[in-house]
Nucleic acid binder design. Structure first.
Lengths: 199, 199
DNA sequence: GAATGTCACATACACTGTGTATGTCATTAG
DNA sequence: CTAATGACATACACAGTGTATGTGACATTC
């Protein structure tokens, strides 16, 4: 398997990336349902055939967009959670997450469009790899460190994930000028909640 | 305005109710997107024309289904919250709500299908009248009674609503045999959270 | 280096589902 | 008895998805 790319491969990859980029913009701006593959194709100056060549169907394209957003987000959040103590690390991650949700594309795509585009079930399946999975790991770390009690783990994870989702959606809904305030309010209420669950 | 109904009116109302009933079943069983108006019509043994005669479009039909579910739910929950102390009333309402979410139709329609069918924005607008509005009133009552602090009210309401949504969805997802356990777990974690916010 | 295969994409079409415009018949009002 | 209205059925226009097929540029093989 040669590390060099043939001209064809390079072109193909560029096309794929271009489609992904335009799709990201359009899905974020107009929403999933209101964006047709014809929109995506013409914005990329290719035909729908090209889109179907690179992505199995509309949903797969959206999932690819989501994947890219989540990968980026997870990296940033994981990078921020530097503390050795799991509790402190979780709080750092929380801050990084709330920051990330202020990014319009991330907020809209992951928290607004994601569930409505894919449905809860499929969306959660996708999230297992990323945000939901991250929460899962943090919760387990907190349990292992003795900060949280070890029963009803699944519910604790879902509960936490859900609250973060609420924050994400609230921030995605908010206007740019409201975001800092809303960010702080959610940060405050989530920290209080975490303290309540701490044992 | 005569209180008696003409034959035509009676027939018409029966047809409307029948369509609504079949739509409720189908939307709950197959989901909004997977249910075509042709399904609804043929299940009711009318044509799509009749459906469009009674409901402006597919979304309006779904909203009518939702309305009926929510009216029922709100009545039951309000009836359960008999305590005079707002705090106790809120806890009673919580229990009634969790019970209601164990009803498959309510859970699926309101918490699973609602947001994905209507989108967050429209769904929240519909919910203002019902579940969201109910939470809003309880939160205000708790603030007025001095149980909760009076700042970041909007965020407190959304936070509470969101947690209830998480519970609703968890219960809608659960199998019948899991429901009691999951119900209790959420009840427990929500009560702890409420206590954390109490001042 | 010509023949052959393959990949990246374009073109064309079938199908599903929504919404709308029009038609029809029974009931009701005058 | 006639005209109007309401409750539905029929027929159609249209958008959007997905699929089957076509085409030309590049790569591979001998």
């Amino acid at each position: 398997m040669p590390p060099v790319k043939s001209r064809r491969e390079a072109y193909s990859e560029a096309t794929r990336a271009a489609i992904l980029g335009e799709a990201t913009t359009l899905f974020a701006e107009r929403g999933y349902a209101a964006t047709s593959l014809e929109h995506v194709a013409s914005a990329t100056r290719v035909t729908r055939g090209a889109v179907y060549h690179h992505f199995a169907d509309k949903q797969a394209l959206f999932e690819a967009v989501l994947d890219a957003q989540e990968k980026q987000a997870i990296d940033e959040i994981a990078a921020a959670a530097t503390a050795t103590d799991p509790w402190d690390a979780a709080l750092l991650a929380l801050d990084a997450f709330l920051d990330k949700c202020c990014d319009p594309a991330y907020g809209r795509l992951v928290w607004q469009e994601g569930p409505t585009a894919l449905g809860w079930k499929r969306w959660r399946e996708c999230e297992e790899k990323y945000a939901y999975g991250l929460v899962e790991r943090f919760v387990h770390a907190l349990i292992d460190a003795g900060y949280l009690e070890g029963r009803a783990v699944e519910t604790t994870i879902r509960f936490s994930f859900w609250i973060l989702g609420g924050a994400g959606l609230a921030l995605a809904d908010a206007t740019d000028e409201d975001k800092p305030r809303i960010r702080d309010e959610w940060s405050y209420i989530i920290r209080r909640t975490l303290n309540a669950l701490r044992q």
